[in-house]
């Protein structure tokens, strides 16, 4: 019978020489398995004098533990080598093109509208829509336009028949809302408007507008300024300030034109704000009391504000788009320049 030392040495040499994890599995069985050589030595224990038995057993078990440790160690090393070889074989060039799944892009006007919806929705305004093919009544009459106002000219407005026209402003939604609802209300809409204009870089017969209004007790010009300020800062940056300038629209009194401090130069003057430090965004004011009264809203108790702005203006400003015509031409070389 070979000595423990001889068997252990043989096992250690074989482990050191093993060149695969598979070979190690076999060595493990050969030396340490139930029928293994080292385990087999224990069977000879019966022939030993009783006083040597414990010591011999301990020696065999210690040898088995050392061999097991060597196998584990060798296995880790081989695994490392095998992985290294495998990873080398499987090497790719990660800079090669990815397989692009085609995810549709929102149109830049849609993306802008969605941002506006999130901001005004967050300020508590409810999104509603009204027809593009609007009644004369809602587009002009209900908005306190005096009869014979120049905006009603065929030169400015597309008429479909005696009553129907293509709305010239999203403000036309106001009468439809006042007719159905009572204050308090906070509503906004985003939609398409039409003016009879010849098309060039900065004019179009079709464009998009936001109209936002609220009616409640005690609504003031300060609330209008606060809401516009919050809206402008959410859209254009946290430093933006709002400026009011008197202006005239039949449906507001007082009426203002509002501008924001230029978010690109901080108000010191640049190409975007044409050196003025301010960018005019649209018209605003307190809802004309004639309109509220026409819909049976008590003007001693309630007042309201309204503001509007052009949707196209926002991406034109933020992306430096210099021609309004791009928006509705759908050239993918244009559309794909902007994140969805």
């Amino acid at each position: 019978m070979p000595s423990i030392e001889t068997v252990e040495r043989e096992a250690m040499e074989a482990v050191a020489a093993a060149s695969s994890t598979q070979e190690l599995r076999e060595l493990e069985i050969r030396f340490l398995g139930k029928q293994g050589v080292l385990t087999g030595l224990l069977r000879a224990i019966g022939q030993l004098p009783p006083e040597e038995k414990p010591r011999f057993g301990q020696q065999v078990n210690a040898a088995k533990a050392r061999v097991q440790a060597a196998i584990d160690e060798r296995e880790r090393e081989l695994k490392r080598l095998e992985n290294a070889a495998r990873f080398e074989r499987e090497r790719i060039d990660p800079t090669m093109p990815g397989r692009r799944w085609r995810v549709g892009r929102r149109h830049v006007l849609q993306a802008t509208a969605d941002r506006i919806k999130a901001v005004l929705g967050g300020l508590g305004f409810e999104y509603l829509e009204s027809p593009e093919l609007e009644l004369f009544r809602y587009n002009f009459e209900a908005l306190n336009y005096p009869p014979d106002h120049p905006a009603m000219d065929e030169q400015d407005t597309f008429y479909i028949d005696d009553q129907h026209l293509l709305r010239t402003q999203c403000t036309a939604i106001q009468g439809r809302v006042f007719e159905r609802r009572k204050p308090p209300l906070r509503v906004f809409t985003i939609g398409r408007t039409y003016r009879n204009e010849n098309v060039d870089r900065t004019h179009g017969h079709t464009f998009h507008q936001v109209d936002c209004f609220m009616v409640d007790e005690g609504v003031s010009m300060a609330h209008l300024k606060g809401t516009l300020g919050q809206f402008a800062r959410s859209m254009f940056g946290s430093d933006v300030r709002v400026r009011f300038r008197p202006d005239f629209f039949p449906f507001v009194e007082p009426g203002v034109d509002y501008a924001i401090s230029c978010p690109f130069c901080g108000g010191s003057g640049c190409a975007v704000c044409k050196g003025s430090g301010w960018i005019e965004l649209g018209g605003a004011g307190l809802v004309h009391p004639n309109i509220l009264e026409a819909y049976g809203i008590d003007t001693d108790r309630y007042s309201g504000f309204a503001f509007g702005l052009g949707v196209e203006r926002i991406p034109m400003m933020s992306h430096g788009i210099d021609d309004l015509r791009h928006f509705l031409e759908n050239d993918l070389r244009f559309l794909e320049q902007f994140p969805s």
Partner: peptide, 30 residues
């Protein structure tokens, strides 16, 4: 309200503070 506009205009709209509306808020959003 036409007179109130005149007062505001001469007083100066730059003196109007920014205040967020309070009070009952109907459902907002889409």
């Amino acid at each position: 309200d036409d007179l109130i506009e005149e007062v505001g205009r001469v007083h100066g709209y730059e003196r109007i503070p920014e205040v967020l509306p309070q009070g009952s808020t109907p459902q907002g959003g889409v």
